[in-house]
Simulated scan of single mutants.
Amino acid sequence: MTANSIANTKPTLTAQQLLDSYASGSRYFTQANMTGADLSGVNLSGVCLSGVRLSKGDLQGANLSGAYLSGASLSGANLSGANLRGADLTGAHLNWANLSGADLTGADLTGADISGANLSDAMLQGANLSGTYLIGAHLKGADLRQANLAQASLSKADLAGAKMGAANLVLAKLKQANLTSAELDGANLAGAMLKEANFSKAQMHKANLSKVDLTDADLTGANLSKADLSHTDLRSADLQGTNLSGANLSGADLSGVDLSQKLLTGAKFTEADLCLANLSGAYLVQASLEGANLMGANLTGAHLITTNLADANLSGANLTRANLVQANLRGACLQGTIAPNGKVHQ
């Protein structure tokens, strides 16, 4: 028996039959075929529709709070404005579904396929989206605060203006995702794939971005103050207007990156790779560059007051007009370094 013939053996259930049985107290309607059914605006709170086929169904404004929809097929369904608070949607198929403005607060969507779906302005606070497929999904303005998106696939997803404070995005895939003006304060993105992602004007105060791939990412105007960027790859990232004050960039790869005129007060660059980086005019007051690789870096006019440069590699670096008042240069390599007075150190 083929897969299609098996699927076609599912008992057909009309919308009216479902509503009549629900009104009589029945709650279990698993594995039924309700493709294209009109259930808009109905109350089905706590219903069990596990494995049900509701592809292209109309559930606009329906009350499905606490419903069991695990493994259900809702591809292309209209769930805009639906109440799905606390619903079980584990492993459900919601690709290309319309969930705009839907309330999914506290819902469980573990392993669900939501690729290409419209979740703009949806409420997903505290929802479990771990391991979900949200490739190319539209989440503009969605509320994902404290949501669990660990290992979720969000490549090319639109998260512009999304609220994601304290969200768990550990090991999530966000390559080429749009997070313009997104709120990510305190979010955990450790180990995430963020290559070529757009974080312009995003708020990421105290966010965890350790061991992240941010190569070629757009971070223009983003707020990364006190963020953890340790051991992160930032090569070719656009950091124009980015706030990195108090950020932890220990062990980060910033080789060749433009940090000119950047406010980096109190930032930690311990053992970071800043080879050939442009730090001209940067404010590195009280910053830690201990053991950092600054070989060939441009530090002309940099503010290095009370900066820790102990054991740093400054060979070939240009420190012309740099302010090194009370800076710690103990054990630093200064071979071929251009001193503040313009003389080359032998």
Results as ranks from 00 to 15, higher is better:
V325Y: 13
S288T: 09
H93A: 15
G36D: 15
S70W: 12
N98S: 10
A157F: 02
G336V: 03
L264H: 06
A92T: 03
A187S: 09
A160E: 13
Y68P: 08
A177Y: 00
L334A: 02
A252N: 07
N318S: 09
K173E: 12
A142M: 04
R321K: 14
A117M: 07
S80A: 09
T320H: 11
G61M: 04
A267L: 00
A87T: 10
L134H: 01
S26W: 05
E183L: 14
M34C: 08
A277C: 02
A167F: 08
K173M: 11
R235W: 09
R53V: 15
S315V: 06
A15E: 07
L39V: 03
M164F: 07
N78D: 15
K343R: 15
G116I: 08
K206P: 06
G91P: 12
L263A: 12
V325T: 15
Q151H: 10
L174T: 00
K268T: 01
S75N: 12
T90W: 09
L94A: 09
L124A: 05
S230D: 09
L171F: 13
A92L: 10
I305H: 04
K173A: 13
D213C: 11
G331S: 13
A142C: 07
S5V: 15
N308P: 10
T232Q: 02
D311V: 14
N313V: 02
R330Y: 12
G81A: 06
K226P: 07
L144C: 08
K173T: 11
G246T: 02
T242R: 06
A72H: 10
H303F: 12
N43E: 13
L94W: 00
T2S: 15
G131R: 04
A82M: 04
A167T: 01
G81Y: 09
A142N: 00
A67K: 05
A237V: 00
G241C: 07
L219T: 01
L124G: 09
L279H: 05
S245A: 12
A187N: 09
L224R: 02
L219Q: 00
S70L: 08
